[in-house]
Design a protein around this nucleic acid. Structure first.
Lengths: 194, 194, 194, 194
DNA sequence: AATGCTCCAGCTGAGC
DNA sequence: GCTCAGCTGGAGCATT
């Protein structure tokens, strides 16, 4: 007998749907097992997403996130990571024009002391300093506070939030360089041997 | 080497995702083929959904849809189907109390003529008659117009929109009887040999 | 103070999300009320979807669904509606070529009797007859069974499943004529006065 | 005239849908503007999600992510952040039982030199050392490499991947402590005065 | 071809 | 305890 093309297509699609359901069941089971073992399924899902990215894309994405977090003041004490600093160093606003030479323009930087614990007021001050530093054309690298000091993150926040705050000329560092879809060749591998 | 349980889970999930992608690709291809043949992919999707239902569920769903369409005035000239009429006949409002005996209470019914084409005004009149008939406790079966006559659909619309219009005692016919999820046994097979 | 454009955007999006949540809450409440009144929320959702369509689109969609149902054998005793018949009558396959003149080519049609209830075997026979009629180039209109007779639907199923069964030249009637998106003008109003 | 309750509900839902569409339009416009300004819409969406979290939840989530990344070897040169180190320090596996006293059990640690750039082989070695350190019951804090040194991240990766690698007793540090839904009060603020 | 929108199914938390 | 409404992620579709 000659079965209609429509029926053939429907059967095919139903077969595919069947197999898909089976896969979904399998997946649920695996997730359930992971949860039983003590893992957090949401975080595992995050990892799956990150593992799809190339290392360069991953770095770029993390750097962008950190920059945006900083600009929004949700750095939570974590200072800017290396990749973010590197991105921002390439364009504090534009090439750092003179008029405010980055080197000498920081005479009144507070010494990076206070290992025991800076007060909230001090942290706020650091944020303000960061914004001012950006205005003066200094690079993010000019952050005077040591790693681990909450003021380091605050300074970063201030610096980032100053970037782009005038509503014009948001520099290219804020743009995603690597394409969202895996495109093809080497998107921006961040410079391996650098 | 002993691979970590987290890594094992991640690999498993990635494998599942991989197979799922393959399935999605296959499905897309089939749909594309169907479209090329001249079929409408949306309607095919509808068919897949309907084929998942048992005949009884299907009939119930279609009956409900027709009743709701009628009540909303979007019957588009299609009169109520058999299943919808059957549902509604069970409860015009409640058991058709006497006081208005369905049989004799329709002395002024317009004769179901007009084969060539009723005017919009006549159709509206039929709608009003349907509503009045409902108010008088008559069953949907009392529709005097022949199949194919647009006034038949209009009468149905009027009748349905009168049901439940007083804001209270929406009869059970409007409820879904068969469970949404395939539940178990025979939900309401509608009476095969009836 | 000059608030950063990024922050402004974020605030704006958060505000929009807030209002969206409020709307979702409102919608849930309405649906809950409908369910309490005794309505089926799924069917209501169907109605909302149908009401978005123009009458012509609605008719077309319903006609297509019925044709597809018939071709798949899930007509459930409901014969093809007017719109579906009209669509199919325009192209039984192509213009009904001669070689099998539709009019006289049905000498052995079974008389549309059996008002009490045809047997399953009789229904199957009707399905086969429908397919044969299609092969002979007869239009759907040639269905000899009366409305209400289950064999009418079966004949339709047979006819539809024969259409397109040869894997080539699926006629235009199976295609959606009205665009999915409301496009612009009158897409195919089905011919009012026809 | 008395409008039916069904129609009232449908109208209400359509009104809500209308307003929702308006909101969607507004949102699209905002996103478009953000893109025009040079921001990345995906990252902005991430920020919106993070801003919904309390600082404690945020820290916890980031810490978990870093730990999972480390265990999966996708740290990309970024060593474990403070929050992650803190979480892991609480339970290297269990309370660090003696039998391998953390302090003296590291005689052959490589000196944390190599500012110019460690070779891949050296990085791999650091990874192995981290795993070994975990096996010996040493805390994550024992990482001998300086911040900025890629081997620090590698050591962390090794340490994390060793945790839980035996398939049993995944310590509580890997579990999410703060509820996913905002629950109630301060869930685990991470210890302010530390 | 890249992106945003829409729909849909699967997962998750609440409510009876 | 189970079901159900809401939510998120993914795919198809249209658009630019």
């Amino acid at each position: 007998m000659n079965t209609s093309p429509l029926l053939a297509i429907v059967h095919e699609l139903e077969d595919i749907a069947e197999r898909k359901s089976e896969l979904a069941r399998e997946r649920s089971e695996t997730i359930r097992r992971a949860r039983t073992l003590g893992f957090d399924s949401t975080v595992i899902a995050d990892m799956l997403r990150e593992r799809k990215l190339s290392p360069a894309q991953r770095r770029n994405l993390h750097a962008l996130r950190e920059m945006y977090r900083a600009a929004l003041g949700i750095l939570d004490g974590t200072p800017l990571g290396d990749a973010a600093v590197k991105r921002l160093s390439r364009s504090p606003k534009d090439p750092p024009e003179d008029g405010a030479t980055p080197d000498d323009a920081a005479p009144d930087e507070p010494p990076p002391e206070a290992p025991s614990g800076p007060t909230p007021a001090e942290i706020d001050a650091a944020r303000t300093e960061g914004a001012a530093a950006n205005q003066q054309g200094k690079p993010v690298l000019a952050n005077p506070y040591a790693a681990g000091d909450p003021r380091r993150a605050a300074w970063d926040e201030g610096w980032c939030s100053a970037t782009g705050s005038d509503g014009m000329d948001i520099p290219a560092a804020w743009r995603r360089e690597t394409p969202k879809k895996p495109g093809k060749g080497k998107p921006d591998d961040g410079g391996s041997g650098e």
